[in-house]
Design a protein around this nucleic acid. Structure first.
Lengths: 133, 133
DNA sequence: CTGCATCCTCCAGGATACTG
DNA sequence: CAGTATCCTGGAGGATGCAG
């Protein structure tokens, strides 16, 4: 994990090799890894999935993704916005907005579709509710 | 590289199902969710990816997945075995064994391929191999 | 070599409560 | 309704060491 600092008292001198030091996180050489990182969050894919059909407002997402905490939804949404997968879009003249997939976000749908196919085939729908990690 | 026959063709042709997209609440089990849980681990997909081409031994996986700790590899491998995605297979007469994808595991490849395509297109990943992350 | 066990750190994310 | 802020916990997973 991350020990790249003197945060621990017993970490005396860890001369980390700058060359080999790979601060993983976003930049990855492998597209699979990079996508996995993007999507790794527990709810991330479900949010994208929930937005697949049409734009949704915050409270609508809260209802669709039953069990998600507002904090988590907020955090995930922000992350997705930053990643460029989701954008806020105006929806009503009174200024209310909603969240919608961007083109990039929409292209994540094949991944979700593939997962859904797999899930239907092998996990049959009796593997327990959403929410187990 | 990874290939399991003619499975490759279908993943891209996505049919956005407007109806299904919004109906996966907590009331019913969600296949996307279940698959996501299966695959959520940091290294899980990479291990499957690494096994896509052929069976690998423990130390070979350690090398391919540069940076993974033996403990994590062991844990992940065991989880994958339990999930039925990976199986130990004999490889040499002296009793050494290797890990290989099961049929079920192989059917996870479309998901990985979809992710790879996405990664290549949007995350600038043009490289094939997973170095480290 | 193969692989498990033990320790320890850290962060995603749940609960809750509060603002605009 | 639409978020934000604080507190807290579970478990993933890295380091290291040992057993078969």
């Amino acid at each position: 994990m991350r020990q790249s600092g003197a945060l621990t008292e017993h970490a005396v001198a860890v001369a980390r090799d700058p060359a080999a030091g790979s601060e993983h996180g976003a930049a990855s050489t492998c597209p699979v890894c990079a996508t996995a990182d993007l999507v790794c969050g527990k709810w991330t894919l479900l949010i994208v999935h929930a937005l697949a059909a049409d734009a949704r407002r915050f409270c609508e997402l809260e209802q669709t993704l039953a069990g998600i905490s507002p904090r988590t939804l907020s955090v995930r949404l922000r992350a997705l916005e930053e990643a460029g997968l989701v954008a806020r879009v105006p929806r009503t003249p009174d200024g209310a907005h909603a969240y919608a997939l961007t083109d990039m976000g929409r292209e994540l749908l094949p991944v979700i579709e593939a997962m859904e196919r797999f899930g239907r085939r092998w996990l049959g729908g009796s593997e327990g509710p959403c929410g187990g990690r």
